[in-house]
Design a protein around this nucleic acid. Structure first.
Lengths: 193, 193
DNA sequence: ACGATTCGCATACCCTCGGTATGTGAAAGG
DNA sequence: CCTTTCACATACCGAGGGTATGCGAATCGT
């Protein structure tokens, strides 16, 4: 076995993060016990506190990871299209589809706001997935596809709509019906001119 | 002092509920200590467990109370209008305004889904405020003001949009801008015919 | 190359706080 | 008036987050 200190550190951190993610997604933040996460990761609670300042700290790192992955998924779905409007639609659909992932559902959409506080949650959301949304809306407004307007409130409206609908789909809602409703909603934003 | 047993029971229960609501709204569920709530209500932890089966039980009762008040506020705002469309708009605006109430914000929108689980939260939401929304949409669809479509996904979209935007306003977002964005979004739903 | 130092973790411990089991005195019931 | 019920209080338990400290192995300075 190799034994570089930096390597070992990274390995342990990843193991904790991976196990934490599994459990946070499956059981929810509150029911996860940190010592069990550490044990399953092959270390003890001491290691967890060496890498993260608290249970919430591990959770925060997990949120960051899941957020980033989600942002990439959404972005890559959007990038497959040339048309700005289709980019928005594709990104939104990708987000709705991501709601089936328990990690996204439980960690990002349900627990994160309560555990980290809405402010911090929103800040993290902004720097990953939500940013794409505001950028897309800004571009659409500049291109005249939607009315020129402050994009921030509109982005919040759509972000909330997507979050809630993703959860609804995950709990048995019809994905196709959701996409159609979303399409109607988005279509209503286009300039009538 | 009078001393009917039923009276005393009601008094204590209300005191616990009121104090719990204050603290849940101010500090968030996790940071609230049940014994402190009881002490501030003039009783001990034993009383709290006599009235509610757990800390989550007290929280659940609090959620119910806040939800119901919110539902009434929204409904009464809507009822001030004759026109179905104006009822929807008024209800939505009332909801956004309610987001300034810390109890609504923290208890209903942030903590409740995490503490009670999304399913139970949604069930409670449904029997108070969200129900009005689906009813309004159904009526509008029947009246031909909006396209005939499954109302459930649309209701989820709008409900999520309102929740998130209420939080955004509470954290410094411009209420007027939010209402305008909401109006555009809703207006897009009207039948073009 | 070898002592000094850092560092990645383990071990042992504390303490808060949710939950429970049991006691008690005063109202309700017969 | 005696019994029962009931609305709490009191005492206790244990889980689990957080901390203080020890230790052995990698890293560094000379």
């Amino acid at each position: 076995m190799v034994v570089s200190r930096a390597e070992q550190r990274a390995v342990t951190r990843q193991a904790l993060l991976a196990e934490g993610r599994r459990r946070f997604a499956a059981d929810g933040y509150h029911r996860v016990v940190l010592a069990e996460v550490a044990r399953a990761a092959g270390v003890t609670k001491g290691a967890a506190y060496h890498h993260f300042d608290s249970k919430a700290g591990l959770f925060r790192a997990t949120v960051r990871q899941v957020q980033q992955e989600l942002g990439e998924r959404v972005a890559s779905a959007a990038e497959r299209h040339e048309d700005l409007w289709e980019q928005l639609r594709a990104g939104c659909r990708a987000f709705l589809a991501a709601g089936t992932d328990p990690a996204v559902r439980r960690i990002l959409l349900v627990d994160a706001p309560a555990v980290l506080g809405w402010d911090e949650w929103r800040a993290l959301d902004e720097e990953s997935s939500a940013r794409h949304l505001t950028e897309a809306l800004t571009a659409l407004a500049e291109a005249g596809v939607i009315d020129d307007q402050p994009v921030e409130p509109l982005a919040r409206l759509l972000s909330g709509a997507l979050n809630e609908t993703a959860l609804w789909i995950a709990r048995g809602g019809d994905p196709q019906a959701a996409e159609q409703a979303l399409d109607r909603l988005l279509a209503g934003l286009r300039t009538s001119a």
